[in-house]
Design a protein around this nucleic acid. Structure first.
Length: 450
RNA sequence: GCGUCAUUGGUGAAGUGGUUAACACGCUGGUUUGUGGCACCAGUAUGCAAGAGUUCGAUCCUCUUAUGGCGCCCCA
């Protein structure tokens, strides 16, 4: 049997419906916040990721899907979205447009890792990037945007952890201080941290083993090493977040893995058993040096990314109640060939008029067709009968009340239109005035505190 | 990349070194010659992830591979 590649997934059935729902919410929010949709290639020159991500992490060397194309060019399946977006910004000279440029994306990413809960080799991420503004208002907007999407999706117990790494100068001063503080005690740390101290010392801060280490009690904090400008900047971000009513926790252990981050960094964590250690549902930060590093003009940038696969797991785990309809308007049944012909004709006519109609395809017995109608959660059923059809009539049955009516075929569309009127629009929430009276409400007000 | 546990029909799963691999759900048909959802009856894995080996004999023991779960590394 041919199976899907390791760490990949097929999404179908209810999961697929939830997935589409999530994407609709994302698109809707990105539009409201006026972020333009950007599609970039799924693979790029390997050099893009090599230059962008930096040398200190293992990402480039062993966790990307690299291949030579037939022209012997080094290619890499994109492991994340930001580099491609920045490359596109530079290549399409978007810096010549009115800045900032606000962009969003949604697509598959590829990472050559050992799969585990919430970690696939092919994953789907959406994210937003803003290039061309260093104003802290953008930092707050990006964080808020992501937060609103998560809460609107109905996710609970999300905590926003933020931190500032300061500018490159502050960051390297802190890095030195951290190494100076830890180095004398390094023998008390785990083997991994002994390597980290020379390779990527900031990551010692979120080591799972050593986080309980006594030495951490007095570990230098990045916030003490920020210069005045960076400090003021961080204060502004927090102030704007307060205005946007985004709850956050200042967490000096958030350092992120990559070299290009500076100033604001953040993670959205969710407390879900099924995700194990993969409890970060979204993350991002500011990368003011990246554009220049990739050969573009010096341009400030900030963004976030979030994995849809993990959101799906979290929504399932939290039993988020979403209004997804797994039902059809009408199921048409028939027995003989003449009725069958009319069934496909009528199905098409009704479909073109906006109804969701299905019919029998496998020559089941009439009893089987009724079962099929139930499986599809048909709101109405109709058994096409030659005699009725000759009289230009159809017997239609409300599958919930079991009431049957014989009506004229000419009146069918009008009849269904009237009976099926109560269709609700999925994105029709009113965030401002929501009174949060129902559990179905997906507004961002915190129901639990009510 | 490292460690560890697992893999039996469409699904949830029992089970044993030996001749028909339980049970349940689902599905299909019938009882009901064109009106279902209940009930009853029947059918539904020549096969136990794939390959190789040990054995008179392997779904069961051994090895390899694949995939999955969990932990580690890493986390964009």
């Amino acid at each position: 049997m041919i199976t899907k590649p390791k760490g990949c997934k097929d999404i179908y059935g209810m999961d697929a419906k939830v997935w589409k729902y999530i994407e609709r919410i994302i698109d809707s929010f990105m539009e409201k916040y006026n972020y333009g949709y950007l599609r970039t290639p799924i693979f790029e020159s390997s050099e893009l990721y090599h230059r962008g991500v930096g040398e200190s992490s293992d990402i480039v060397t062993k966790e990307t899907y690299d291949f030579l194309d037939r022209g012997k060019r080094n290619m890499t399946l994109r492991p994340e979205g930001t580099a491609g977006v920045v490359r596109s910004y530079i290549e399409n000279k978007m810096y010549g447009d009115s800045n900032p440029v606000k962009l969003y994306y949604n697509g598959t990413m590829y990472r050559y890792e050992r799969p585990q809960a919430g970690r696939e080799r092919e994953l789907t991420q959406f994210g937003a990037e803003v290039l061309g503004s260093d104003d802290p208002i953008i930092d707050a907007e990006i964080i808020s945007l992501a937060y609103q999407i998560f809460t609107t999706l109905g996710l609970k117990n999300i905590t926003v952890h933020i931190n500032s790494l300061g500018d490159q100068d502050s960051r390297s001063k802190y890095r030195d201080a951290l190494v100076r503080y830890i180095a004398p005690h390094i023998n008390d740390f785990c083997d991994d941290c002994k390597i980290r101290i020379s390779k990527n010392p900031l990551r010692i801060l979120d080591c799972k083993i050593d986080s309980k280490n006594e030495i951490f009690k007095n570990v230098p904090k990045i916030t003490d090493y920020l210069n005045d400008e960076s400090k003021a900047r961080f204060e502004k971000v927090k102030e704007y977040l307060d205005i946007l009513k985004v709850p956050y926790i200042v967490d000096s252990k958030i350092v992120r893995g990559l070299d290009y981050y500076n100033h604001t960094v953040f993670e959205f964590m969710i407390d879900i058993e099924q995700l194990g250690n993969q409890n970060v549902i979204g993350a991002g930060g500011r990368y003011n040096g990246l554009c220049e590093q990739l050969g573009g003009p010096s341009t400030p940038g900030i963004g976030f990314a979030s994995g849809i696969d993990r959101i799906l797991v979290a929504m399932e785990q939290q039993k988020v109640d979403i209004n997804i309809k797994d039902e059809i308007d009408l199921f048409l049944m028939y027995v003989n060939e003449e009725e069958k012909k009319y069934a496909i004709y009528l199905a098409q006519e009704l479909r073109l008029n906006g109804f969701c109609v299905d019919t029998e395809y496998t020559s089941r017995s009439l009893k089987g067709q009724f079962k099929q109608a139930d499986r599809m959660n048909a709101k109405f059923t109709a058994v096409l009968n030659s005699e009725d059809l000759d009289n230009n009539e159809i017997k239609i049955k409300n599958n919930k009340t079991k009431e049957e009516e014989i009506i004229s075929l000419d009146a069918l569309i009008f009849y269904l239109d009237e009976k099926l009127e109560n269709e609700d629009e999925i994105l029709n929430y009113d965030f401002e005035d929501c009174e949060c009276s129902t559990e179905e409400c997906h507004c961002h007000n915190n129901h639990e505190e009510d």
